[in-house]
Structure formats: structure tokens, C-alpha cells
Write a protein that binds this DNA or RNA. Structure first.
Lengths: 150, 150
DNA sequence: GCTGAAACGGTCATGAC
DNA sequence: GTCATGACCGTTTCAGC
């Protein structure tokens, strides 16, 4: 993972469809050398996946919400984590320091969808308490990259 | 934006390097028809960009932090927004409901980097107050897609 | 939106350093 | 071990329908 690998990842992040020749011109390497580096970066996990950033609104998900979750004392934390991984509306789930257990980022078609999601958390007895903040606008946002089939 | 466009975006999100023929097989369309749809989805902004998801740790950014920001009463909010857009360590910036003005997601090489970032916010007189939470682990996280040159 | 042909680009074997 | 060259072949692209 040297400076060249770094540059390659930056170039791919901007546009992962540029040709190996283009990238090679940017890092003074032949297409095949670039290809080999990309193969290694992908194999090592430095590049997780080639994907598209979509506009959540275009996908019918105009509401972005952040939910602070305090897990119920008797809840199964491993179960919560796998729950989070299987719900496509959760685009992020972080175990964080501070008074809350987890921070979730949710994409939803409507506020009613957020309410329904909170109901699900309650039904499954994960929640001790929670706090929800709605994103009004997002000057910087990676958007949405659907995991699974939505 | 019909069901087929939706499916195409989902398939591209999983792996945007699959061939038009592969995608076509998944949606019962010819490669050229798929290509035309992708072109339209990109032109309309439904697909923002073709990119790679990188592992922040591999890029030397093992620390993920969320910073709640309350803007100083006399601060220039437009300036804060463009500041946020130009700082590569900010991977998300959301204007949110609730007691705080903004939520930032930061990738940093170290805790010292977070401290330095907070100092910058103070120096620029953006901050009334802030609260920082460090991500301990992330069961669901899109990772990092470098904007700009880092 | 499909078909078919042409241009392009990714891939891999080979050889140099 | 890493990289460049060049030929092969799958893929994208575009014209015509």
C-alpha cells in the first residue's frame, strides 16, 4: 500500500469506469501493472467493492434519519448487529462511545417509514430508549448504495 | 424510473463492473437497452457516480468519529457548508433537527487528528459547542470513498 | 428496444529488469 | 517480485430497423 496504490484508489473513487490506460497515465504505469495492483487491492480488502452511488430521492427514499439507540439491558447485542446487517434501510450502524450504544443511519420513503422502523426495534425488545434526528439537508453525503434487494 | 431501473441500480450497487449482458439477463433486456438506461440514470442524477468503496483502515484512517456541531450564533452558515465540502476528512455533513445544527462524520488517522480538526473548527469561529463520539466498531458501514486528493 | 458490426478495453502469456 | 509488451477475446457502442 504505497503512494501509487493510494492514488489509484483516489482515481477509482472519482470514477471507477476509467480505463486502465487512463489510470496508468496518472501514475506512470502500464495498464497491466495497474490491473495487477487493483487486483491486489481488491483481494486484500483495501477496495471493498466497485459500486454506484445513487441519489436516495430518485430511489424513493427522500427521508434520511439518524437514530441513537440505547440497547435494552437484557437484549442480545449479537442479534441486534445481525438484525442491522439484514435491514436494507440501515445504511450505517456504528457502535459508539458516549451515552448511547449505537448510531443508525436510515433511508426511508417517509416519516411514517421511520416510525415503523422504530416500532420494529421496540417489538424486538432491542430498545431501552432512542432519539431520532432527521436530516434537513446534506452538504456532504455519499448518498445511497443499496445493499441487498431493498 | 421504473422497477427495471431500480433493479439495475441494485445490481450495479453490488458490482458496477458486471457486463451489460449480465445485467440484461437479470432484467430481461438486451445489453444495448441496459446501456441506454444506465446512460439515462446517470444523466438524470439518479446514479451520482461509479466509484469504489475503500477500507478506511487500509487508507490509514482507522478512526471514525461523529461530531455534533452547534454553530456559533454569529457564524456564517454558508461558509461552514463550503468549508465542510472542501475538507476531505469529512465524509458526511448533515443539517439535522434537534438541539444540534450539524452532524459530521470524520475519518482520521488518529485521535490526535480529530483533536486537530476540532481546533480548526474553533479557530474559524464556527463552534458554539460540540460533542464527539468515536465509532468503536461498525456492523454496517459503507466505508470510505475519497473525495478529492486526500 | 433489438440486432449486428466495429472499435475499444480488459486479460493473460511472455520476457526484461 | 514487479513491470512492459502485444495478441486475444469479451464488452461496449452505435447505426439501422
Amino acid at each position: 500500500m504505497d503512494r501509487i496504490d493510494h492514488k489509484i484508489i483516489t482515481l477509482l473513487a472519482e470514477d471507477c469506469r476509467r480505463s486502465l490506460a487512463d489510470i496508468g497515465a496518472g501514475v506512470n504505469l502500464s495498464p497491466s501493472a495497474v490491473n495487477e495492483r487493483i487486483r491486489r487491492l481488491t483481494a486484500s480488502g483495501a477496495i471493498r467493492r466497485f459500486t454506484v452511488e445513487a441519489d436516495p430521492e430518485a430511489l424513493g427514499l427522500p427521508v434520511t434519519a439518524f437514530i441513537w439507540v440505547a440497547l435494552a439491558p437484557d437484549s442480545d447485542e449479537a442479534a441486534f448487529r445481525s438484525f442491522a446487517q439484514t435491514r436494507p434501510e440501515i445504511s450505517e450502524c456504528h457502535h459508539v462511545t458516549g451515552p448511547w450504544s449505537y448510531l443508525l443511519k436510515i433511508h426511508s420513503p417517509s416519516l411514517a417509514g421511520i416510525e415503523a422502523f422504530l416500532s420494529t426495534l421496540k417489538e424486538r425488545r432491542f430498545l431501552a430508549r432512542s432519539e431520532t434526528m432527521i436530516a434537513l439537508s446534506s452538504p456532504v453525503d455519499p448518498g445511497f448504495s443499496p445493499r441487498g434487494d431493498l
